[in-house]
Design a protein around this nucleic acid. Structure first.
Lengths: 345, 345
DNA sequence: TTGTACGCGTTATCAC
DNA sequence: GTGATAACGCGTACAA
């Protein structure tokens, strides 16, 4: 009897049916070249024995792993939403996702190395803050898709939404409402933060406003940074509108302003970016910008898979057009106010 | 020269130093029995060659993998917060986390099977909705810790916060404020939802109120379910307070009530559960219950690791005491109102 | 420290 | 077209 103490192996299944290991392997990989009857027998025997393939063993020699690495900052609900869509899409094309969580104690480089160690064939980076050269190097090692930001160097695939245009839409909206004194709460020196900041500055200048002193760098994309930025704003005369680099910052800003009794949007308008669940719900009702996470996930999977399964080699760079979502945190400024920090140009 | 086209192997490193594979293996596993000079030589050679261990190969024969599987619903920011803490804690004790995302298209069973295939030695389930017997079976296969819920059967380790008591604290708080007409928005038939629902009913009865018609089942823990529940509440006379099974439900409830012009907490008080970022921030300011995610993560890691590294065999069941966090969505009911749905008992 | 026998699928290559 | 045989991959474990 082929019942050892440990788990059944492929050989056990083969013995039971009276075929060779190789045949069993073919059956499990759904490869052609096995007769219908044999195939059925193998599957039944495997089922009887409770056999499951040993992934470590398979991974060791197989050319393909059908594994995709995804690095994301899961505390960001926008990232989480993209991840969910990626998992679904990957499933549809026969791939499995290995998810690496980027946290304050676990940097992106480390997460990526781990994903590679797990033999991922392709890599999806959600909103990476890595330098472009690092991303480019990674892209040379294996098919990589950057989601949500620009990459200046190299030939890595990119799926993103036009951040500059998204922020410009927000500025246009505010200017239409009559705002002249607008401040941007930026999120540090990363590429995404930079694009949004530049988008803000350009839009302001286009409308004839200066940008001197109109940008306040919160340092990163968290609620805490937003709260800190708001406290800093409160130290001098408030602008009539605050354009935040993402929803989390906006939520932090709202939190602090509101606690100080500032009426939103009566006294100050506030906007976010991402249209995350945070923005859509519960008394926040944030005017923000949608980045179509589901669509970005779909395109990203298409991009890796076309390289992996169909040998595509040319660079894909897909830029979606973001859409402003006007909710309740923006309104016309109070009459009689003068512009303060943002001086006319 | 040992430069093949493919990646360098352990043998390449060994050849370069003039030692055996076995020695190199020992060095990389930080095992004792290698002289200091040899160790240094090996590390330097490995560095020169750009050698990285082949995890698949190691996993195939090694007794230990030092991998922990974590199943979580990352769209839930409370889960995400626990995951982040787990990653950090695992790091400190020399383990790596493999994260499985539970989504609408990816059930828990499937996620867990995948984690096992990856050779995880221990499993951490965050707020699982699996039947107790499935969890118990899993616990018999490998060290498992359930986080955030009770498990009636089996001897699986559990780290949780006392949900019944948490909800009771909320009810006490509302009753103290003078509420008599309180409705609970429940989240379906899962264990967590059940505990909270029962906690609600018991607390109400303890205060002398009936529970007939005082529970509205929203079906699950999402914002959408909360919105639907709120619409249903609006069809008849509103209660003076709504106790939701978690923050996401509460946020959905708030969203709909507020859009209908209901004053919170003037007309209706609303409470959540989890003290997630959703509750803490941005105009929501939700009265809720803290479950100490960092502490739960810490204890959960301690639990698996004590089984894995120190051979513990007795069951661990740690129940933390939740703490109510009173914010701005609860207040005394308007004078002159009569109790409606929740009839006195 | 070092041989060296595994472990468990995969992938040629070969026979019918 | 079906299936078998055997070599192979890359560390680990254990005896020497």
């Amino acid at each position: 009897m082929a019942s050892r103490s440990s788990r059944p192996t492929m050989q056990d299944v083969a013995d039971r049916v009276g075929v060779s290991k190789a045949t069993v392997s073919l059956v499990f990989r759904k490869a052609p070249g096995v007769g219908d009857k044999t195939r059925e027998d193998v599957l039944r025997a495997a089922d009887d024995l409770g056999y499951r393939m040993n992934r470590a063993a398979a991974l060791m020699t197989a050319r393909r792993s059908h594994l995709l690495g995804v690095s994301a900052q899961i505390s960001n609900s926008f990232h989480a939403e993209i991840v969910e869509n990626i998992v679904t899409e990957a499933d549809l094309v026969g791939y499995e996702v290995v998810l690496g969580a980027v946290t304050p104690t676990h940097g992106e480089e480390r997460v990526i190395e781990t994903l590679i160690d797990f033999r991922c064939e392709g890599m999806l980076l959600i909103g990476p803050e890595l330098p472009g050269t690092s991303i480019s190097n990674l892209g040379n090692r294996l098919p990589t898709v950057v989601i949500g930001r620009r990459v200046g160097v190299g030939s890595t695939d990119v799926v993103r939404s036009n951040d500059g245009r998204g922020i410009a839409g927000v500025v246009d909206h505010l200017v239409e409402l009559g705002h002249e004194n607008v401040v941007h709460v930026a999120a540090g020196r990363g590429v995404i933060a930079g694009d949004r900041r530049r988008g803000f500055e350009q839009a302001m200048r286009r409308h004839g406003f200066g940008t001197e002193g109109a940008v306040l760098d919160a340092g990163d994309f968290t609620e805490e940074a937003g709260m800190e930025a708001a406290r800093s704003l409160l130290e001098s005369e408030l602008p009539t509108a605050v354009v935040c680099a993402n929803d989390r910052l906006a939520v932090g800003v709202l939190e602090v302003l509101r606690r100080k009794g500032v009426d939103i949007p009566g006294e100050v308008s506030v906007t976010g970016y991402d249209d995350s669940i945070l923005a859509r719900m519960g008394n926040v009702d944030l005017t923000t910008v949608s980045q179509q996470p589901a669509e970005q996930a779909r395109q990203a999977i298409q991009a890796v898979v076309s390289r992996l399964d169909r040998g595509r080699t040319d660079r894909v760079s897909k830029t979606l057009t973001p859409e402003i979502v006007v909710r309740k945190t923006t309104a016309a400024p109070r009459a009689g106010r003068h512009s303060g920090q943002a001086r006319g140009g």
